[in-house]
Design a protein around this nucleic acid. Structure first.
Lengths: 213, 213
DNA sequence: TAGATTGTTAATCGATTAACAATC
DNA sequence: TAGATTGTTAATCGATTAACAATC
């Protein structure tokens, strides 16, 4: 129904639409979305046409309907129970990240091996020891895990999560984690990668501009 | 020389190669890299062939040479001075992120508007007020900025950064920031987007497996 | 009706991949 | 030499985009 390329843009449309809605708009045109996201307007219409006829010719798209439809497609229009494994600097930051809650992701548990952290609070949650992982995941029907442990620990923790039935892992540890078996989907996020892409883009835009540097 | 698709994979190769090197390997084959990154081996060879003949037929690629070449291409084989604007939870986490230093990015300054934060230490740095931004950027030859301020403040801070000559901004604020003029390159990182992609991947892999849910 | 914008087609463009000769 | 793996071609596949009829 949707190509991979389209799927990867749906979250971007969603964010932009929510921004427009908050700013008071109720309708939007393909050209507006395209400009704001640096895309082509044909591309936007083609992406959105996968939902069936949603727009009105001559008028545009109803923002509210678009948001609901995209959310339905992306997240099944339901909330997901998420746990955080590894409450270091990054883990703490991620737990406070507004965007997650907004998009239907509920942080229901936080885990760390460090005995000094266990028992402390993280927002409204109490940090639990890693031993509790298995019981908690089963009793709370947790499906997704955010992994922010040190690189060295990441593969073994990922394996443990898979064994107990976690279906998706968002890995922030600076190491590529591949699924031990294939019952779990792992998305690796590398923050340094983004900075490298930025540096490359800056270098090439300078070259284009004719600077010698 | 390199397609966009190839460029976006170079940082992934780099990370994988550094991991292999740390594990004691000195050579690697296209098939090995492909498997570890979920790519096709032809694709890996094609990507790497842009550097000229680097591999040895029948043997593979020298890891050390590959790393150096990729680093050269991506970052100009030099270090970049980076500042952090917005020292909240996320900013603090980013400042401690190992991956940045490893890839040649040096955090040279940290800024926040909050008077209670100004003067405090962040690692080896002292947090400065936003007023110091312009002077600091010019005297320290800062080129890149990591933006982790609240969404509402992001566009105006981005504009300020552009005016004073910053050439690249990595934006973590949960809002799409587009360059006011075109003298700056902005890369928007949305952490919730990754979680949404994961959720979608989980949903579709379930459907494929025939679960009704 | 006149103006605007969608939905969709067809053409173009670019990226992936299988295959294999070259060669270490 | 025999085995392995690169570098590169050619074919395939998929994604983007211009264009325009449909229609609000």
């Amino acid at each position: 129904m949707f190509s991979d390329a389209t799927i990867s843009r749906l979250p971007l449309y969603l964010r932009e639409l929510q921004q427009l809605q908050r700013a008071g708009s109720s309708r939007v045109q393909s050209g507006v979305l395209a400009r704001r996201l640096g895309l082509n307007d044909s591309q936007v219409r083609r992406d959105l046409s996968g939902f069936g006829p949603l727009g009105q010719r001559g008028v545009g798209y109803e923002i509210r309907a678009l948001i609901e439809t995209i959310q339905n497609t992306l997240g099944g229009n339901r909330s997901w129970n998420v746990i955080l494994v590894g409450v270091g600097n990054l883990g703490t930051a991620l737990s406070g990240y507004r965007g997650f809650e907004q998009q239907g992701f509920r942080l229901v548990g936080a885990f760390d091996t460090d005995p000094r952290k266990v028992g402390k609070r993280l927002g409204t949650l109490e940090i639990q020891p890693l031993d509790h992982l298995e019981d908690f995941i089963q009793s709370e029907e947790v499906e997704l895990a955010i992994l922010s442990v040190p690189a060295a620990a990441a593969p073994s923790v990922a394996q443990r999560l898979e064994l107990v039935g976690i279906t998706g892992i968002l890995n922030f540890a600076p190491i590529t984690v591949t699924p031990p078996q294939s019952s779990v989907t792992i998305v690796n996020v590398d923050l340094a990668v983004e900075l490298q892409r930025l540096a490359y883009a800056v270098l090439t835009s300078k070259k284009e501009a004719g600077e010698t540097d």
